[in-house]
Design a binder for these strands. Sequence first.
RNA 1: GCGCCCGUAGCUCAGUUGGAUAGAGCACGAGCCUUCUAAGCUUGGGGCCGCAGGUUCGAAUCCUGCCGGGCGCGCCA
Length: 581
Amino acid sequence: MPQANTLYAAYAGHIAAALDALEAAGTLPAGLNRAAVTVEPPRDPAHGDLSTNAAMVLAKGAALNPRQLAEAICTELGKAPGVTSADIAGPGFINLRLAGSAWLAELRTIATSGRDYGRSTSGAGRTVNVEYVSANPTGPMHMGHCRGAVVGDALASLLEFAGHKVIREYYVNDAGAQVDVLARSVHLRYREALGEAVGEIPEGLYPGDYLVPIGQQLAAEFGDRFAAAAEGEWLALFRTRAVGAMLEMIRADLALLGIKHDLFSSEAELQAAGKPEAAEQWLRAHDLVYDGVLEAPKGKTLDDWEPVALPLFRSTRFGDDQDRPIRKSDGNWTYFGADLAYHFQKAETADALVDIWGADHAGTVKRIKAAVAAMTGAEGTPKPFEVKLVQMVQLLKGGQPFKMSKRSGNFVTLADVVEMVGKDVVRFTMLTRKPDAQMDFDFDKVVEASKDNPVFYVQYAHARVRSTLRKAAAEGLAPSADRLDLLGAEELDLIKLTAQFPRLIEAAAAAREPHRIAFFLGELAAAFHSYWNLGNDRPEKRFIVSQDANLSGARLYLAEQIGQLVRNGLALLGVEAVEEM
RNA sequence: GCGCCCGUAGCUCAGUUGGAUAGAGCACGAGCCUUCUAAGCUUGGGGCCGCAGGUUCGAAUCCUGCCGGGCGCGCCA
């Protein structure tokens, strides 16, 4: 439920009351499932202010025809406060018209709720673990990580706003072969710092010079102690130091985007604590892990394929195409084997899990969903678990593919991009497309200061509100709710749009789709700019009408609330609301 | 060969989880600046919602099969 005092929530309540009354009167049978009953704005505003499908979705269960039922509901709804008319349309839609005062009351609600307008309790305090970024700790963040980072962070904020407790988590893959490679790469930089000529970085090691300072630091701390030593003497130490330094770098990169996780979970610690063994034991006891031999992969010719018996998880029982190994033939855990234990660990402290992954990991979604279903659903219903895939981002400059290969290896770093275009542009742009569609990120377009650029357009709306309020204050005019009755049809249309915000929050949170907020803000900004421009030709439609303090006060009040709403939306997206542009 | 995602106006994309006559921006045509910031606004044309079936009161939305594009498919991570 949204805050009970918002308009849509109130009328959802009135509709429920009308249905209760019909139940009491025997028109409707008791106990019908009303989950499908909605309250929405009608597609065409000419149809009214609010629309409900109640008659259509309940008709079958009531053994009535929809229009008959609609008539009965209309009679009841006509008695609800603020309703000036209730009509039936089409196959059985019920359209309500509301008195202007009902909308003006919503404007006051925005003012009194302030930054909490739109906040919902629909999450009912349930804990949701959102795991996002989880980039390997082997270098700085690059643009491949960016979209998932922004989407995950905005989703976490959105879920919080919708009444969930949220854990923002980062899974640190510090146990695989890639961190050994990292340690060796750092060792080379360490020898370099000691004065050795290392030349070109060999194939197979990380070439980026972000490792140079770590080598220097280790040289300063340990001298040449490990320069010629066997790998066994330094590998673990260098790995720990290198991973620590990488995580520091990654945290700094994330901070550039305004992202801060609550929890960094280490795969190495998970393994040290014996969690994968415990999971394996449990799975074997439930006949979900067995020793078996995999078939060679199809559609590829492999010369080095040898069938080997491995402990396999029965993911085919849960819809996967193949059972999946949890250990390698050397006895070490596969990524999946550890990941499975990791998800079980997360499920212990959360009511629901959401993972944000890059599309290149799409192939592993089924197995991890299978694992979570198996382990959390042993007794009763499995924990809700979703994997949201964010698709690839193609970097462009002036329509041409953009490459950058300077100091950090051959990828475009996130820090470089934030430096070039700014945090707000990066964040907003990443959220102006649904995440499961590929997108282009064109440097030239995203920094453009025009209405084609939604970041600019939305921020400009806020800046306009603020500058208008400043200008008004200089003239001695202030926002006031005393004479809101002076507001006309155009102003009411704006209020009707703002009133959508609480519904939008709930729908976006339920769908785990923060991009909807960005689109709503674009729509709100367009409506506001459009209204503003009425004043170009007709000075009497301006916010500031110097000779009329009452009218100005009411309009400034409206402007102030629109500004508030833009701030609320931008806050969820992690984008600044600027005072002037 | 298999899996996942996408396919909506010339282009870039939305589409309120199955609702009413499918929307917005760009581009194109016609208008609007001695301005509460024209960094903008008004207005017009433009659609086989990839194709073909199915489900029902009702489908861009759900199901099946094709077609096209992207990503991926090992004991890697």
